[in-house]
Design a protein around this nucleic acid. Structure first.
Length: 336
DNA sequence: AACAAACACAACCGCTGTGGG
DNA sequence: GCCCACAGCGGTTGTGTTTGT
C-alpha cells in the first residue's frame, strides 16, 4: 500500500485503522455529518487524509452495512449483474443493499472469478471457455482449464419462456401474443444495449440477437440518474428467486456456434427453469409464452439489419414487441 | 514447529467527472 | 476556457490470517 502524497507531506497516518480512530470518525460523522471530506480529519481529530476517512466510512463504518459472508443469492446476483454491468462495482453494489463496491470487488476477484473458471466460464465474458480459448493464450483467462463438456457441444435451440404475465414485465398495455406467433414467426429486431424492467433484465448483444431475461434489479440507490422510460419505480422490485447456489447447480454446455446465449444454460432462474427445449437441427431462439410462442429469434441474424422487421409475419404484435424492446434497450443502455 | 503459499480483506493510487471561481 | 478542489470509481497492492507441506 502506498501513501497519498498529501498524507506523506503532512506525515499522516497510513495503513489499518485503530479502534480509537474508528471511534473518532464515527462520532464525528454521527454528530456532524461528513460535510467536506477534506475537513473531516481535522474536525474529527484524526491524522488521516480526507480521502482515507471517506473510504473508511463508506467501506467499514457506515451503519447500514451488512457485515458477514455473502449468501448464495447475493453471489448469484453479483454474477448476473456483472454479466450485464461488467466491472461497474459501484452500480452492482447499489443493487445489493448493505454491500460496498470494494467488498463486491474483493469477492469477485478472490472467489467468484475462480469459481466461474472452475465451471469453465470466462469471468470476463461470461461465456463458457472453449477448448480453443484454452489453447490460445488470452489475457485474463484461465488457460489450464477445459470445460468438461465442451466436446459435447451441439447446435441447440434456446427457448425463452416468459413469466405468466409478460405484459407487466414490459409495460405493455395489451399484447395479443397468441398462436399467430408460431416458431415460424420472424425475429424481433433489437438495438444494442441492455434493458431492465420489472422482474427481468435483458441484454442485446452485438451478435447474435439474444434476449436475456434473468433477474430483477432493485432500485438503484446511487445518486446517478437512471432513465427508466415511462415506468415507475414501483415496477423495479428487488427480487431474485434463486434459492440455490449457482455454483453448485450450474452446468455449462459450450456451443461454439452460439456463444452469446450460452449463459442461459447456467442461469438458474425461473425464467429458464424447465423452459429450455433443445433441438439438434438448428440454432434458434424462441420466446414462449404460456405454451405459445411470442416470437422467434431466428438464425442468429445481425440484429442491426433493417430488413429484419420486414420479416415479421404478425406485424401488430411483433412490431409492438420489437419497438418496446428497442425503447427499453435504449433507455437502460443509456443509463449504464 | 517452521516455513511458504494461498487467501481474504482493507486501504491506497491514479484517474475521471463535476462544479465553482 | 482554464484551473483547482473535491468526490467517486476501478485497479492494485499491502497486510494479516489460514492452509498446506
Amino acid at each position: 500500500m502506498g501513501r497519498h502524497s498529501c498524507c506523506y507531506k503532512q506525515k499522516l497516518r497510513k495503513g489499518l485503522w485503530s479502534p480509537e480512530e474508528d471511534e473518532k470518525l464515527l462520532n464525528h460523522i454521527t454528530h456532524h455529518g461528513h460535510g467536506c471530506w477534506s475537513s473531516v480529519p481535522k474536525l474529527a481529530g484524526l491524522q488521516r487524509c480526507g480521502k482515507s476517512c471517506r473510504l473508511r466510512w463508506i467501506n467499514y463504518l457506515r451503519p447500514d452495512l451488512k457485515r458477514g459472508a455473502f449468501s448464495p443469492e447475493e453471489e448469484n446476483l453479483i454474477v448476473e449483474l456483472h454479466s450485464v454491468l461488467g466491472n461497474r462495482w459501484s452500480q452492482i453494489a447499489s443493487r445489493l443493499p448493505g454491500r460496498t463496491d470494494n467488498e463486491i470487488k474483493n469477492l469477485w476477484n478472490s472467489s467468484i472469478k475462480k469459481k466461474l473458471k472452475q465451471r469453465g466460464i470466462d469471468p470476463n465474458t461470461h461465456k463458457p471457455i472453449t477448448e480453443a480459448d484454452n489453447n490460445k493464450p488470452t489475457r485474463g483467462s484461465n488457460n489450464d482449464h477445459k470445460s468438461p463438456s465442451s466436446s459435447a457441444a451441439t447446435n441447440q435451440d434456446f427457448f425463452l419462456e416468459r413469466p405468466s404475465d409478460f405484459s407487466d414485465y414490459f409495460g405493455f398495455q395489451k399484447l395479443n401474443f397468441n398462436s399467430n406467433l408460431t416458431p415460424e414467426s420472424s425475429l424481433c429486431s433489437m438495438v444494442p444495449g441492455q434493458f431492465s424492467l420489472g422482474n427481468m433484465v435483458g441484454s442485446v448483444f452485438q451478435t447474435p440477437v439474444c434476449v436475456k431475461p434473468s433477474i430483477s434489479l432493485p432500485p438503484d440507490n446511487s445518486s446517478s440518474t437512471v432513465s427508466r422510460g415511462d415506468h415507475t419505480a414501483s415496477n423495479w422490485e428487488f427480487q431474485t428467486n434463486n434459492t440455490s447456489n449457482f455454483f453448485e447447480n450450474s452446468v455449462t454446455k459450450p456451443n461454439p456456434n452460439f456463444e452469446e446465449v450460452k449463459w442461459s444454460e447456467y442461469l438458474n432462474t425461473p425464467f429458464f427453469n424447465g423452459s429450455t427445449v433443445q433441438s439438434q437441427s438448428s440454432q434458434q431462439i424462441y420466446i414462449k409464452s404460456e405454451g405459445e410462442y411470442l416470437a422467434k429469434v431466428s438464425n442468429i441474424t445481425d440484429p442491426w439489419s433493417q430488413s429484419q422487421n420486414e420479416n415479421l409475419s404478425t406485424p401488430e404484435a411483433s412490431d409492438v414487441f420489437s419497438k418496446d424492446l428497442q425503447r427499453m434497450a435504449v433507455s437502460f443502455g443509456q443509463s449504464l
